[in-house]
Write a protein that binds this DNA or RNA. Sequence first.
DNA 1: GACATTGTATCAATCGACTTAATACAATTT
DNA 2: AAATTGTATTAAGTCGATTGATACAATGTC
Lengths: 135, 135
Amino acid sequence: MVTLDPPWHPPSWSLDPSRPLYEQIARLIRIELACGRLAPGTRLPPVREFAAKLRVTPNTVMRAYLDLERDGLIETFRGQGTFVPRDPRVVTASRRALAREAVAYVQRIAESMGMTVEELIRLAKGEEEGGCTTS
Amino acid sequence: MVTLDPPWHPPSWSLDPSRPLYEQIARLIRIELACGRLAPGTRLPPVREFAAKLRVTPNTVMRAYLDLERDGLIETFRGQGTFVPRDPRVVTASRRALAREAVAYVQRIAESMGMTVEELIRLAKGEEEGGCTTS
DNA sequence: GACATTGTATCAATCGACTTAATACAATTT
DNA sequence: AAATTGTATTAAGTCGATTGATACAATGTC
């Protein structure tokens, strides 16, 4: 009755032991959402199925879904499943959120080094120095 | 015989429980170094003293110092202490390293969203959308 | 040489976040 | 009723980070 839009298959999975699994799973979905590969209305895999595919416990997937739902990026309905909201503004918001988070990060670094983000980028690209050069 | 340049007092310390202490300590020093507040030749506080000030174990500070030494950012001499190398290129290198790390981070995010860094920054600043907009 | 200072090394123990595993319950669809 | 799916709970296990204590090594000072 509610098999909404196209199914979604998670992309190839790579494990990064340095961060919690649930966080990586959530991040994976955030990115899929932000870049449009996960369209509004799409149904996510059930927790058990997704867990089996990733070789983790349903609990772990559950925790990822919870994080995403707290941020309003997905909606869940008992007995039906977990979905990306139909409202396309959710995708827009997720793009913005990811971008803001990333930019805020470099901004903190740049600020603590007494530079602007643009200067930081130029420095990283290696064209010039910061000001402590000799020799 | 070797009391080198001016002493250095660690800045006000703020705890971030989400990352290991030794990593935060190392990062603190990296930033101090990169922005010039920790000049070449400066002696860092002895592990025990620094540990006492931060209310942690000397072991933890030790580990931070080890990380920094592996990256060539500091030099240690038994019985003398731990120092920022006199070679000013170390500061330059640390600036570059921090900048590269930060920029690489946003680049990964941007790439996974199918954008350039410049586009990501503009998006974060909120002037425009990514392409999924309606309503 | 004796002593103080500082870095280095090691080990056992603790703590906490993360994860597993098993199980039961709740809502919806068929 | 049965199947599917999300939700909740509890106990246990794992692992990295941190502590605390202690001993050792190199350098400088007296």
